[in-house]
Amino acid sequence: MRGLSQRQLGGLLGLGKATGGVRVNRYEQQTSKSDIQTAADLATVLQVPLAYLFADTEELAAHILDFTQT
Rank of each mutant, 00 (worst) to 15 (best):
M1S: 15
R2T: 03
R2E: 09
R2A: 11
G3L: 02
G3C: 13
G3K: 07
L4G: 09
L4Q: 12
S5Q: 06
Q6T: 03
Q8I: 00
Q8L: 00
G10M: 05
G10W: 10
G10C: 09
G11F: 06
G11W: 02
G11K: 11
L12R: 15
L13D: 06
L13H: 02
L13C: 05
L15C: 08
G16C: 10
K17W: 01
K17I: 06
K17E: 15
A18E: 13
A18T: 15
T19L: 12
T19C: 04
G20Q: 01
G20I: 03
G21L: 11
G21A: 05
G21E: 05
V22I: 15
V22A: 11
V22G: 00
R23L: 09
V24Y: 04
V24C: 10
V24M: 08
R26Q: 15
R26Y: 09
R26M: 12
Y27P: 01
E28A: 12
Q29F: 00
Q29I: 08
Q29C: 08
Q30C: 08
T31P: 03
T31W: 04
T31G: 08
S32Q: 11
S32I: 00
S32K: 13
S32A: 15
S32H: 15
S32E: 03
K33N: 14
K33Y: 04
S34C: 11
S34W: 12
I36R: 03
I36M: 11
I36Y: 12
I36G: 00
Q37G: 01
Q37R: 06
T38M: 14
A39K: 10
A39V: 05
A40V: 09
A40W: 08
A40T: 13
D41S: 14
D41L: 04
D41T: 09
D41K: 05
L42W: 02
L42T: 13
A43Q: 07
A43M: 04
A43E: 04
T44S: 13
T44F: 04
V45N: 06
Q47A: 11
Q47F: 00
Q47I: 00
P49K: 11
P49A: 11
P49H: 08
L50T: 12
L50S: 00
Y52L: 00
Y52I: 03
Y52P: 02
Y52D: 03
L53T: 03
L53Q: 05
F54C: 04
F54I: 09
F54T: 03
A55W: 06
A55K: 01
A55C: 07
D56G: 15
D56A: 13
D56W: 02
D56M: 02
T57W: 07
T57V: 10
T57M: 12
T57N: 10
E58P: 03
E59D: 03
E59C: 00
E59S: 03
L60Q: 12
A61G: 07
A62Q: 11
H63Q: 15
I64T: 02
I64K: 05
I64V: 14
L65H: 01
L65D: 01
L65E: 07
F67E: 02
T68E: 07
T68P: 00
T70I: 02
